[in-house]
Design a protein around this nucleic acid. Structure first.
Length: 199
DNA sequence: CAACTGATGTGCT
DNA sequence: GCACATCAGTTGA
């Protein structure tokens, strides 16, 4: 089964299966410990909500590609396109553990401890050396590869909660992480998030 | 062309 | 836990 076929399922189904997967770019590899699902056209929190634009074009392409965008003018955030046909589903890679190329990752983020090297989407992008030019990369054949885990992370070790830092649709519990993993980033609610305050 | 915004990071307490 | 620095891209005129 090809990578694209394995990812050809709804984001909410694919997201937890990406935990434990390894994203490799050159010397650096990151084992994913935290992801978020974005459902596309029906999800007000998704970049694809409202249709295709110059920026989000990759989300409307085939599954198994890397969707990179610029956040806060300085950080590169990486998603994996998932879902069937040209449905604009994606999974944001929020955090991970550097499992190869530790020296290179440290050089890229000199002020980080090893634990923080890829703890957060911007940090993860920087540790891997991503740029906007990497948007659209095919993760099965390109210079950036996604290696799905041989044995998935057991469901008992997967925790869920609301997505981090969103203003819209901030209450949907579409964030997935590996329980008790130190490289998972802390939850942060958007200052002006819509919806009910978390009790 | 100018103004606004953000799926964040860092430092300080 | 909290404040604020940050700046390219996107949007609207």
């Amino acid at each position: 089964m090809s990578l694209a076929e394995q990812l050809a399922a709804p984001p909410l189904e694919v997201a937890p299966r990406l935990l434990g997967a390894v994203l490799r770019y050159g010397d650096v590899a990151v084992r994913l410990t935290e992801v978020e699902a974005y459902a596309g056209a029906t999800d007000p929190g998704s970049h694809a909500f409202g249709g295709p634009t110059r920026r989000n074009g990759t989300m409307f392409g085939p599954a198994g590609r890397l969707y990179c965008y610029l956040s806060h003018g300085i950080h590169i955030c990486a998603n994996i396109t998932v879902g069937e046909e040209h449905g604009p589903g994606a999974v944001l890679l929020r955090a991970g553990e550097v499992v190869a190329g530790l020296d290179v990752a440290r050089a890229r983020r000199p002020r980080s401890t090893d634990r923080d090297l890829a703890r957060g989407p911007g940090r993860l992008g920087q540790a891997l050396g991503l740029s906007l030019a990497d948007d659209g990369t095919d993760l099965a054949t390109g210079p950036i590869r996604l290696e799905l885990p041989d044995t998935p992370v057991p469901v008992t070790a997967v925790r869920t909660g609301p997505r981090t830092g969103l203003r819209r649709a901030s209450d949907r519990p579409w964030r997935f992480w590996i329980d008790a993993d130190p490289t998972v980033s802390p939850y942060r609610r958007h200052p002006r998030a819509e919806g009910p305050e978390a009790g």
